[in-house]
Amino acid sequence: DGGVIKFGHDNKTDPFENPAHACTAVFSNLVSAGTNGAVTVEVFGSNQLGTAAEHVQQVRDGILQATLTSTGALASYYPRIDVLNLPFAFANNEATYKVFDGDFGKTLAKDIEDTLGDVVVLGFPDTGGFFAVTNSKHKISELQDFDGIRVRTMTLPSHQKIMQALGAEAYPLAWGEVYSGLQTGVIDGQMNPVPIISFANFAEVQKYMTLTNHLFSPYTFMINRAFYEGLSDSERATVRSAAENCVTASRGLSRIIEASDRGLAGLKDKIEVTALTAEQRAAMAAATQPVFEAHVSEDLDAKAAELLALFKTAVQGANADSYLN
């Protein structure tokens, strides 16, 4: 029984620096304490053992036991994860917690497990919150403002289509070229969660940031199935509970980073920040959601359409729900 969980992720190995390592640090501590050292966790951060997509393969092959993977990296193994890119879905952060901790989270985890066959999904930690759009042309505060802005996206068809539906032009560009691309004007803007915008110093080369909150893209926390099933019942229970605390830690640190000078508070001095009104956001949702749904029904399979329907219902429920009320 017991053993070592080799855990790969793609962020710095400082628990106060990023949600990924906060999550793994909490997980590591609770697992070794809860099993009295029978199960220990060794964390390999900073992409030491490969890209996020390679981590997934290494977990499947039993080389690593666990990883946190981004939706972009998971998409090549499990294309239906794209469903989570439904734009302008969530009203606030709490809604994301409710959706991924609730029935939808369970359904999604089960579907990933069934599709891959060799992993168990233990949760959906926060990667740093909602996406914002930055650019160097002009302030974006309503739908029309996106016209003609050339935005860098990942090589992800859904992200490209969402930007195009807003009226922007979308070009995939290698991550390593984004900063200089923004600096010289090869592209006008980009989209990412606020901590990444801060971390990558995009404020140095961008003038305007709009808190569009149009995407929420969690990590998927997965563990090798054979390893997991080889644990004793009580060890599995400990791992499950540690995973829940890992997810909670990732959310807590994400909110703290947003509030600190490494997040919005720090960016406000360097870049003009705009928040959207409810009406502006509704207009953007109306412009993008039909395009996204057409993309899901055309480019993904029938099960993806079902999953999307479930996702929308779960999100609506979570948006309507209010805390302790």
Binding site: R150, T155, Q160, Q164, E169, Y171, P172, L173, V186
Partner: peptide
């Protein structure tokens, strides 16, 4: 050329 002249926004040249 696409980014500068055509504006087709091709998703594949980089990959």
């Amino acid at each position: 050329m696409d980014r500068y002249f055509f504006h087709w926004q091709l998703p594949w040249p980089e990959e």
